[in-house]
Simulated scan of single mutants.
Amino acid sequence: MDNTEIPVKIKVKTTIDRQESFELITFGRYFQKGEASFLKYEEVQEEGTVRTIVKLAGNEALILRGGAVKMRLPFELNRVLRGSYEMPFGVFETMTLAKRIEHTEGRIDILYDFTLQGEPAGTYHLEITFQEERK
């Protein structure tokens, strides 16, 4: 069981309904624990620092965000799962339906339908690429 954290350079690209696209380049850590792989990183937003953990295991994934934004987005292939998105003015219920969860060396690809408070918010494509940071 390898628990060594590897420093990585991360590129996060989120595309909504194939129209809007956001990109983030940051640094973080990648490690494996048992059957699961984890990617941890932080991003600084106007509201403050947001810590993100992406967990992958088999056909499931989980994105946890803490700090200025609190979010729990669970994914399981072809299943609707409930999550939450917490903002200063309240907690919103989210639902995800993962159409694709792929995890290869240095790449995470999740395609999902996202629902916020019962309203469809679009089809999201999350692409995360990462590589070991060279000293």
Score class of each variant (00 low, 15 high):
residue 54 V to H: 01
residue 44 V to I: 15
residue 17 D to M: 04
residue 129 T to K: 05
residue 124 Y to M: 07
residue 100 R to C: 09
residue 41 Y to P: 00
residue 135 K to G: 11
residue 94 T to W: 02
residue 22 F to T: 12
residue 71 M to V: 04
residue 25 I to Q: 08
residue 12 V to P: 01
residue 108 I to E: 04
residue 129 T to E: 10
residue 4 T to D: 06
residue 15 T to Q: 06
residue 12 V to E: 04
residue 69 V to N: 07
residue 94 T to I: 03
residue 97 L to H: 12
residue 19 Q to G: 10
residue 53 I to S: 08
residue 132 E to K: 12
residue 116 L to C: 03
residue 31 F to Q: 02
residue 107 R to K: 11
residue 73 L to F: 05
residue 71 M to H: 01
residue 82 R to T: 12
residue 96 T to W: 00
residue 49 T to K: 10
residue 135 K to A: 13
residue 62 L to G: 04
residue 37 S to R: 13
residue 67 G to I: 04
residue 114 F to W: 06
residue 36 A to R: 05
residue 124 Y to H: 08
residue 86 E to I: 12
residue 58 G to W: 06
residue 96 T to F: 00
residue 47 E to P: 03
residue 84 S to C: 12
residue 43 E to T: 05
residue 16 I to V: 15
residue 63 I to G: 02
residue 64 L to Y: 08
residue 68 A to D: 04
residue 64 L to M: 12
residue 57 A to T: 15
residue 106 G to V: 04
residue 71 M to I: 04
residue 89 F to Q: 12
residue 98 A to N: 00
residue 23 E to P: 06
residue 24 L to E: 01
residue 37 S to Q: 13
residue 21 S to C: 12
residue 117 Q to K: 08
residue 134 R to A: 15
residue 10 I to R: 01
residue 85 Y to K: 02
residue 94 T to Y: 00
residue 51 R to E: 13
residue 100 R to H: 07
residue 81 L to T: 06
residue 120 P to L: 01
residue 2 D to E: 11
residue 42 E to P: 08
residue 120 P to A: 01
residue 96 T to L: 01
residue 1 M to Q: 15
residue 51 R to D: 10
residue 77 L to M: 11
residue 46 E to S: 11
residue 28 G to N: 00
residue 59 N to H: 13
residue 73 L to C: 02
residue 58 G to N: 08
residue 13 K to R: 12
residue 129 T to F: 05
residue 48 G to L: 02
residue 63 I to R: 05
residue 59 N to T: 14
residue 22 F to S: 09
residue 91 V to Y: 07
residue 55 K to A: 10
residue 134 R to L: 15
residue 83 G to V: 03
residue 114 F to H: 03
residue 116 L to K: 01
residue 39 L to Y: 03
residue 95 M to E: 13
residue 20 E to P: 11
residue 126 L to M: 05
residue 18 R to I: 13
residue 94 T to E: 01
residue 1 M to T: 12
residue 117 Q to H: 12
residue 95 M to D: 03
residue 6 I to D: 01
residue 49 T to M: 10
residue 7 P to K: 03
residue 96 T to G: 00
residue 69 V to Y: 11
residue 30 Y to K: 09
residue 108 I to C: 03
residue 113 D to E: 13
residue 9 K to Q: 10
residue 20 E to M: 13
